[in-house]
Every structure is written in structure tokens, then in C-alpha cells.
Design a protein around this nucleic acid. Structure first.
Lengths: 133, 133
DNA sequence: ACTGTGACTTGCATTTTGCAAGTGACTAGT
DNA sequence: ACTAGTCACTTGCAAAATGCAAGTCACAGT
């Protein structure tokens, strides 16, 4: 982009933490990324997660994450057209954040678990699109 | 907001990521933790951060983080009583999340920087974790 | 008594979230 | 052809969270 790099216009500051939070600092965005790591790909699969995300929120987050370049949307069939979402390299780099959150949660929040399929893929860093959990 | 709230009370699922996000999944909580890592301690110092957090939000986040055991509040003087906030061990463990966010931000968001004082402390406290292949 | 400071609270408008229901494209069954 | 069903979203609206300005309270200095 610009060699004299400036923070994005929506950014609160030039702090890397604050700017990253501007993008994924909410209760849902990272769950979408978690599920894509976990092998989910379609709107319906993402909706079916145990946290029961509202459909309008999912649509909004998919749009934002796509605009930000963390995920991409491709039609995997025509007639009827159906879409599959997947992580870009930029989105896959969020894996470290996810791992840090999993570690903190399992250590400090009793009763929480790492979703094992997602975790295995996170560590393997090999996103394939096979079946769900 | 429930005064006797424990993490499990408002958890959406038993997923470690989701439950951790229930706690710190917003635009401000991790900035407070970042600033405490960076050596800030008082309400006024925290307010003075470049992101200009609203005062009521700061008060709310300090209360929530204290209730969750990530930070603690101690009077550092009487007459007039003045408070200093600091990270508990539990809060310091969020350092890994912060590091992951800094890495992602500086890599993918042009114009963002790691606040160096905070970063130095973050890394100092991490005795070179063994990274597996 | 008056002014100032630190640490919050309060009131209220704006924004975001959450739920339910609806839409449009298509497909399969009768 | 008509009906039912699925998928991928939208829309409407109530509820909650956020953001801004101003106010409060306890004290301290002058």
C-alpha cells in the first residue's frame, strides 16, 4: 500500500493492539474465524455453532471480515449458487491469537474446553475443508 | 449487569475461546490490560491513553476486570484516598494474547506500531517460550 | 472561602446487538 | 402446476452497550 504507512481511517490510534481490536474486538468475529479453522465453510454451518449467533450478526461479520481480507467467499456451485467461506493467509495468521485465547481460557476458566478439531488444525496450521466437528 | 456474576453465568458455551471473549471480547478491555502492562496504574493515567476511552467505560471495565480477577485495586495513599490498579497473575497471563495481537497488527495493518514500553515488559515477562515446530 | 485535582457517576443520545419473521432463488415431491 | 423445503441472507424493531458532557464527592492548597 502506501510506503508512508498511515493508520486506517477508522483506527482509534496507531497502536497495533487497538487497531486489531477495531477489526476483531467483539464477541463474534473470532468465533467465526475459529469455526473456519475448524473446517466449517458455509453460512449454515457457521450458524449451527453452539453459541447460536444471530443470523444478521453473522452476515455482518462475514462481510466485514471479507472486506478486511481475512476471509474469502467463493461459490462452490451454481444453480442454486452456494457459497463457501475460507480463511486467507491473513486470516490464518489470527491462529496465534486464537491459540493464546484457548490457552488462557482453559487455564483460567473452569469448565471450558478447547474444541479439539479446531485446536488440532490450529496447531497443524493446515486448513482443509472436510467435515464439521 | 449482575454483581455476583461469575464467568460461567454469562458463558455462551463451554468453548474456551467463546468464554474468554465473554470476558475481554470488546474494544476496550484489552487496552486497559495493555496499559497496565505498560506501567500505568491510576484511573487518570489509564484515561490519558491515546485512544481516549470514555470515563464511564473505563470505570465499568475496571470493575469487570477486577471482579473477574484479572486486575486488583489497592489504595496507595489515604487522605485523600487514591487507588492504583495492577495486574494479577491471571491478568498477566493475558500477555500472550496481547503479544499475538501486536504481532498480527504490526504484520497486517500498515501504520500500526507496538507501543515499545508495553512490548518490552510483555516480552520480559515471557522467559522465551519453547516454540514447537 | 475559593480553586483545583483525582476518581468516579449520572443523564441522555447514538450505535450495536439480539430475536423473530420475511424474502428470493432454487429443488424435489406429488 | 402446486406445495413443501433448503440455503443464504434481509428487514423490523426492542433491548443493551457505547459515547459524550456534565456533575459529584472528598480532599488539599492558597
Amino acid at each position: 500500500m502506501n510506503p508512508t504507512a498511515k493508520p486506517a481511517d477508522y483506527a482509534r490510534s496507531n497502536c497495533a493492539v487497538a487497531s486489531t481490536l477495531d477489526l476483531i474486538g467483539d464477541k463474534w468475529s473470532l468465533l467465526v474465524i475459529r469455526d473456519l479453522f475448524g473446517g466449517k465453510a458455509t453460512y449454515g454451518e457457521l450458524l449451527a455453532s453452539s453459541e447460536r449467533m444471530p443470523t444478521n450478526i453473522l452476515a455482518d461479520r462475514l462481510k466485514r471480515l471479507e472486506e478486511a481480507g481475512l476471509i474469502e467467499k467463493k461459490a462452490y456451485q451454481e444453480r442454486p449458487v452456494r457459497f463457501a467461506y475460507s480463511l486467507t493467509a491473513k486470516g490464518r495468521d489470527m491462529g496465534d491469537v486464537l491459540i493464546a485465547l484457548v490457552r488462557w481460557g482453559t487455564k483460567h476458566l473452569p469448565g471450558t474446553v478447547a474444541l479439539d478439531v479446531a485446536t488440532r488444525r490450529l496447531k497443524a496450521r493446515t486448513p482443509r475443508k472436510t467435515r464439521r466437528e
